[in-house]
């Protein structure tokens, strides 16, 4: 009985502590996150607005790719500073943008720009760049130091490899 009571007390304390550490962020934390992500957010919004303003298929690939590149840069910084939470957060975002943003723009371009089109050369260049950037996202060292101990980082790293694989497949020149 006393052991159970002790366990419950410890559990409640741990939960309260964990909540204080990782619950809904308070204003100070939000401000810190805003300062940290301001540049990335600005690039993402600008790229999103450029996407809204163009119907050119290659430009749409490029805008989507540049947005992903901004996240990749932020992820590289997070990996450098060995911050597992940030690596997980940014890795999830990048995987999503690869799979649900860049891949659809590559597919749309492939479907609408035939080889004889004057835009085809531009598309080839955009594909090469997308494949290269997908490669360098998977080349980031997400397994060093503190990151190695995190199962969540391992999961997100796997997720990123899969998403980058989709980008590379979509960027392969169609026969």
């Amino acid at each position: 009985m006393r052991r159970t009571l002790l366990f419950l007390v410890l559990f409640a304390c741990s939960a309260a502590w964990a909540g204080a550490q990782h619950g809904s962020p308070d204003a100070a934390k939000r401000l810190e996150m805003l300062a940290e992500n301001r540049t990335t957010i600005e690039i993402l919004l600008d790229r999103g607005l450029d996407l809204a303003g163009t119907s050119d298929y290659v430009e749409r690939v490029d805008e989507s790719r540049k947005a992903a590149d901004a996240l990749r840069q932020a992820l590289a910084d997070a990996a450098d500073t060995q911050d597992p939470d940030r690596v997980v957060e940014l890795g999830e975002h990048l995987s999503k943008l690869f799979s649900d943003g860049l891949v659809p723009t590559l597919n749309a371009a492939a479907k609408n720009i035939p080889e004889w089109s004057p835009s085809f050369d531009r598309l080839k260049a955009a594909r090469r760049q997308a494949a290269r950037e997908a490669d360098s996202a998977t080349a980031l060292d997400l397994h060093a130091g503190r990151l190695a101990a995190s199962g969540r980082v391992k999961d997100v790293s796997q997720q990123l490899v899969e998403a980058a694989g989709k980008v590379k497949a979509a960027a392969e020149p169609k026969k």
Binding site: G23, G48, L71, P84, D85, K96, P104
Partner: peptide
């Protein structure tokens, strides 16, 4: 493992650009 706090505005910006890619 306990997940750290996530920046809502960053996630919303990612959603924005991702959705714009297919809109």
């Amino acid at each position: 493992e306990v997940a750290g706090p996530k920046h809502e505005l960053l996630a919303q910006s990612v959603d924005f650009v991702t959705s714009m890619s297919t809109a």
